[in-house]
């Protein structure tokens, strides 16, 4: 059984696919739906924040790679998305089309971009116990539980920086701070949840043709549950390790990462070695 996995927002732009006519088609679609052209990531749509442009770039790459795989006759038995990977995952499941995936990414991203100055903090090496305490000490949240030793913190920039410093002192192997404009996957997003719900309510979601397993409670999404999930997932953490283990227990034997990079594949590798 094969699962296609859709990663979240990349941390940098890539021009790897710019010369491929199929990616150029997706880029045009993105430009039409959002004003942002992934072929000109650094200069296109300057009114959008870097975070929103990165989100759109990530979804564009995933949509392109989905199309490429499908054109080769490949197809998944199950689909899973991590964080902002949900929009491309929904498109792959047949619930929405690619243009809607890009428009949703953009509109939700823009709505969150007005929240202020935040940061994400990647912590590698510590286990959950000490990191929960560090997050509490510094007033930040664990936004991603990726593996037993890979976590993402989210919160105010100063607070995340202080948490990363404490994590380093506590023995973290590696820490990295990424400035962003929204405290993704934290309860802080609930302040604008009404706006997000109103945006999502403007779209229609079909029943997924391929089962899509979500990353909070590991349920299979249905047309009726997708709108609430799209807002809920921005207010709650991603539980990737639990999701991966659930997919394994549901019979998945092969995972294909459909996006830029291979971060989910590396998380899965760690989880396997940790078992």
């Amino acid at each position: 059984m094969i699962c296609w996995m859709y990663p979240g927002q990349p941390v940098a732009f890539t021009d790897t696919y710019n010369n491929d006519p199929e990616f150029q088609k997706i880029a045009l679609l993105c430009q039409g739906a959002t004003g942002f052209n992934p072929l000109e990531s650094d200069t296109s749509a300057p009114s959008l924040t870097r975070s929103v442009r990165l989100q759109l770039h990530g979804v564009s790459v995933s949509l392109y790679r989905s199309g490429l795989l499908m054109s080769q006759g490949a197809g998944p038995d199950l689909i899973a998305g991590h964080s902002m990977g949900i929009y491309a995952a929904l498109a792959a499941s047949g619930s929405i089309d690619s243009g809607t995936a890009l428009a949703l990414t953009c509109r939700l991203g823009v709505a969150m971009a007005g929240m202020g100055e935040y940061a994400l903090g990647c912590v590698i090496g510590l286990t959950s116990g000490p990191l929960v305490a560090i997050a509490a000490n510094n007033g930040v949240y664990i936004a991603n539980h990726n593996t037993s030793r890979h976590f993402l913190l989210a919160g105010g920039r100063k607070e995340v920086a202080a948490a990363l410093a404490e994590a380093t002192v506590s023995g973290a192997f590696s820490v990295n701070l990424f400035p962003c404009d929204a405290p993704l996957h934290t309860p802080l997003i609930e302040a604008i949840a009404g706006d997000l719900r109103r945006i999502v309510a403007e779209y229609r979601f079909s029943e997924p043709r391929i089962p899509l397993v979500e990353h909070i409670g590991q349920t299979t999404l249905a047309a009726a549950t997708i709108p609430a999930f799209l807002v809920d997932e921005l207010c709650r953490p991603v539980y990737w390790e639990t999701t991966y283990r659930t997919l394994r227990s549901r019979g998945v034997t092969r995972f294909q990462e459909v996006g830029a990079g291979s971060v989910l594949t590396k998380f899965n590798r760690w989880i396997d070695s940790d078992t």
Partner: peptide, 27 residues
């Protein structure tokens, strides 16, 4: 390679050779 790979190598080195890489600076 990236920092996710680095931690995987830290564990592998400890398991295979009994050698500890204590932190990222050493790594």
């Amino acid at each position: 390679l990236d920092s996710i790979d680095a931690l995987q190598l830290v564990v592998a080195m400890e398991k295979e050779f009994g050698v500890v890489v204590p932190d990222a600076a050493t790594g």
